[in-house]
Structure formats: structure tokens, C-alpha cells
Amino acid sequence: MSSSLPDPVRSAEGTAAAPPSHRSREADGPAAALAMEGPAVSPAPVIAAAAPPARRSWAPLLQATPLGLVLLFFFVFPLLATGVVSLWNYTEYSLVPDVTGRNYVEMFEGCGDLSNGLCTTFRTYISTLRLCGMVWAITLLLGFTVAYFLCFHVRSDSVRMGLFLLCTAPFLTSNVIRMISWIPLLGREGAVNQFLVGAGLADAPQDWLLFSPFSVVLAFVHLYTLFVVVPVFNSMMRIDHRLLEAARDAGASGWQTLWHVVVPLAKPGIVIGSIFVIVLVMGDFVTIGVMGGQQIASVGKIIQVQMSYLQFPAAAAQAVVLLALVLIIIAIMTKLVDIRREL
């Protein structure tokens, strides 16, 4: 049995994994890379130029106009404004239109000198990225497991939908409430510590439960796992169950099927969920502030402090750097999987 395993597995992999690998190969091509860059912008003029008959050429443009305007006013302009303001100078109480590198220079002040340890900016980004990495890994694992269970273990459609809706139930209360309700639970004299001490599992109340990276990650996982469950579930529901049967018939073990069939086919959902989680965590300052006892550095927190001291240009510069970083992360992920093709 064991000797005959590899071949069928490979053939199962061949049938099941071929489509995604084919896709990803395509995605690496220059055409796909081009298509990835703002489809909303480029196709419209192309159509307008290529189709002389006047009436038809206007229709798609008009249809795209409302969304285009919304994006222009509420996305492009604010973004440009942020970029411009990040080059301004400022005083205690006013913004001074100018072109200065002051905000960027101050942000990276002392970053070249590693003798005193890392500079504030690097330390803050590393702290944020570390939290982000932990949250990402845990939400992904949890989200994938939940989605897998819903898709492949629950047989009845109605039960599946019922359970799926149950997953969204926590969203009926506000974000902040869900976060804050952890505090009395995890506190030094909270329920968890009372149990631990009462049951003799700990000699003294455990401080690391609250106002620590642990509590921050816990709150994030609680808040954002569903953002992974939904897209992964969506991707998994499209997987043809005959593929799994074929894999099993060909002798693949459960893990092999999971790794070589399900994961590749669920990739778009995984990437979309990851983008949600990463973007939300990287920009967060409320959860990190409340659950971390305001002691854990995050980029969002720095921006918030600067804003509250009216240092808008400095905050804008931080925001630009953060945006660049997040865009790079997303670019890398979308390079790995062509999401649009899958939707």
C-alpha cells in the first residue's frame, strides 16, 4: 500500500492542483501584472479610443462615472492631500504650506545609529508587525479550520448556513464592547485569575493575561477571525467535492488532500482574508491601546498622538509610510495569487 502511494497521489495532485498552478503561472506573466494595476482606469480610455461609434463609447464611461467620482472625491483626493500635507511644515497651532522633508527626517531620526538600539520608528513598526504576524497566523489557522468544518464536515445545507450565521452572531454587538468585555475577565482580580488561583493552577494572579501582547492578540483574534472565515468559506464552497473523492480514491491521506487539493483551491479566500486582517491590524490603535494598557507601541497610536497634538504633517508622513508598507505586503500577496481571476 505504502509503496503504491506516491504515484496515485501525484496523479491526484495533477488533476486537482493543475488549475491553480496553471493560473499562478499565468499570473506571473506581464499581461496579468498589467491587468492587476487599476482596471478601472485603463480599460475605459482604451475602449473609448478603439470604438469610434460615438454613442456606444460613451455608455461605459457614463456607467463608470458615479463610482469613479466617489473614488476620486473620497479616495484619491484625501490620499493626495495626505501626501501633500506630509510635506508641509507645522507649528503648535497652524499648518504651514511648504515643501519640507522635516516630517520624514524626524521620523527616521537616529535610525542610522544602531548603537543605542533601534530608533523609535523601527521599534514601533517591528512591534506592530509582530502583533500583525501573530494575529494573522492565528486567525488564518482558526478561520481555515472553521471554514473547512463548515464546508466538508457539515452535510446538510441548512445546518451549514445556520452554523455560518451563528459565526456572525458576535457581530451583533459593537466592536468596542466585544473588546472591552475581555478586561473584567482577564484582570488581576478577574474571572480567569480567580479560577486559576481557586483551582490551584497558579499560586498568584497572572499579570500577563491583561495589558500584555497576549490580551491584544486575543482581542484581535476574537474580532477578526470571521474576516478570514467568510472569504475562505466562500472559496471552499466552490470546490468540487468530486475532486476530494478523486484524491481519496487515488489513495491520498487526509492531510495530503488538504494540503494538495483544498489549500491551493482555497488560496484566493485565504489571501483576501489575510488582506483584511493585515490591513485592519496594521492601522489599529484602539484595540492595541485598550487591551495593551496603552503601553504597546503601534503605528496607529503614534499617528493618533501626533494628530491630538495638531502635528498633522507629521501624522500624514507616518500615514504615507504605513500605507506604502501595507501596499507592499498586499502587492506581494496578490503576486502569489491572482485574486480577481477567482472572484
Binding site: 503648535e92 524626524e106 523609535t120 521599534r123 514601533t124 512591534s127 507601541a297 498622538v305 497634538y309
Partner: peptide, 19 residues
């Protein structure tokens, strides 16, 4: 109070939070 060196102080405070 608000200090004359308020900008500098805020930067240092951010550094402290990140420490």
C-alpha cells in the same frame, strides 16, 4: 502646562511608549 519644547516632548513621549 504646554512647554515651549512641546513638539520635542511629544516625540520623546512616543519614543517612551515604544520603549
Amino acid at each position: 502646562a504646554v512647554m515651549d519644547e512641546n513638539d520635542y516632548m511629544v516625540r520623546k513621549w512616543n519614543e517612551f511608549i515604544a520603549a
